[in-house]
């Protein structure tokens, strides 16, 4: 299996129980469905025995898991209708590229329904989708479109990087009375880390510091956060690493606090660069803490080009812990490490 090659080195500090990222998603979904009969899941292959890369297998309530035709636009409208009339749907898309088929429903309907009616209704709808490059999957199966959706008022966007966050953020998303999109990087699925058995939530809009340092603030999302952490640990980089966990709402307090300390900002977000999450964070820091910056901010993301398929091109296209680490070393040097 090609996926087996894509295991990041990241391991969270040992806890009572280690769980894989994918199992944390499965556990959160199962516990939510057991807790609340209004919670149900739907999507192409959601009810398949492999269950969305394992995240939906062996569920306690299969009667509330609906396999759907590959009609993403209608599926999204159906989920909205169910959310408006008392249910709490989890709509799953196997790859976020398929969200684009449902842009009308996501942008014109789901995102706007509450504000068009002045918040008189709840829209407790979770839209899970998988992001990440594949095995020569090419331009239509490798995108990370968080920036596109974060631009739309009315959508919350979460991107867990650790198993702990995957469970806590998904439960927060299911609990929330507004639409939440969760982007899950496929390469994180096998990562393991401590995850409590009981249900817990992580506030939407609360980031975390993954690595302590004083020379450079790196804000990194999802797999990019894990890649940056790997670079920091392998190279001993003096980096203050912030994982916002939620793209929208964004924990600007935590980011500004870090930039105030380091005076330098690098944003690592695996998405197209033009007008994306990295551009937004960079722009906000410039607007709100320009006087704290000692040097111009920098960004790492995808090139301004669509994804290639061939192995050598893929390896040239995607950032890695090494390319991130080298960029940081070139900037702040290696000798200043804590």
């Amino acid at each position: 299996m090609p996926w087996s090659r894509f295991d990041s080195n990241y391991r969270a500090p040992a806890g009572e129980r280690d769980l894989a990222f994918v199992d944390a998603i499965r556990e959160a979904t199962d516990q939510a469905m057991c807790l609340d009969p209004r919670v149900f899941a739907m999507g192409l292959d959601a009810d398949d025995k492999f269950g969305v890369f394992g995240s939906m297998r062996d569920m306690t309530h299969p009667e509330r898991i609906l396999g759907t035709p590959i009609s993403e636009n209608a599926n999204t409208g159906v989920a909205l209708g169910a959310a408006l009339t008392g249910m709490r749907p989890i709509l799953i898309n196997l790859r976020n590229d398929f969200l684009l088929v449902a842009m009308d429903q996501i942008v014109n309907y789901v995102a706007k329904w509450q504000s068009m009616f002045d918040g008189q209704c709840a829209v407790p709808l979770v839209m899970r989708s998988v992001i990440g490059r594949g095995w020569g999957c090419g331009a239509q199966h490798s995108q990370s479109l968080q920036g596109l959706f974060a631009q739309i008022p009315g959508l919350k966007v979460v991107m867990p990087a650790t198993p702990y966050d995957a469970k806590g953020l998904l439960l927060s998303a299911i609990k929330d009375d507004s639409p939440v999109m969760m982007f899950e990087h496929r390469w994180l699925y096998k990562n393991t880390g401590p995850v409590p058995e009981e249900m817990y939530t992580i506030p939407l809009g609360q980031g975390q510091r993954l690595h302590e340092g004083s020379s450079l603030t790196v804000v990194a999302t999802s797999l990019a956060a894990i890649h940056t952490l790997t670079a920091c640990e392998q190279r001993g980089l003096d980096v203050d690493l912030i994982d916002p966990r939620t793209i929208k709402p964004l924990d600007m307090d935590l980011i500004l606090d870090s930039v105030s300390k380091t005076g330098r900002l690098l944003v690592v977000d695996y998405d197209f660069p033009f007008g994306g999450v990295a551009a937004e964070i960079t722009s906000r820091v410039c607007e709100q803490a320009f006087d704290r910056l000692r040097e111009p901010p920098q960004r790492i993301g995808f090139p301004e080009a669509n994804m290639p398929a061939s192995g050598p091109l893929e390896r040239a296209y995607y950032p890695t812990p090494d390319t991130i680490g080298e960029r940081i070393e070139r900037w702040i040097g290696v000798e200043v490490c804590a």
Binding site: A74, G77, V78, L80, A82, L84, T85
Partner: peptide, 25 residues
């Protein structure tokens, strides 16, 4: 009346979702 929409066609799916709600609940 849980709402109405001006992008022609889309609310048909939303109505189907309300029926799904009725069935599941």
């Amino acid at each position: 009346l849980p709402g109405s929409s001006a992008i022609v066609g889309g609310s048909i799916a939303v109505g189907v979702g309300a029926a799904l709600s009725s069935k599941l609940s």
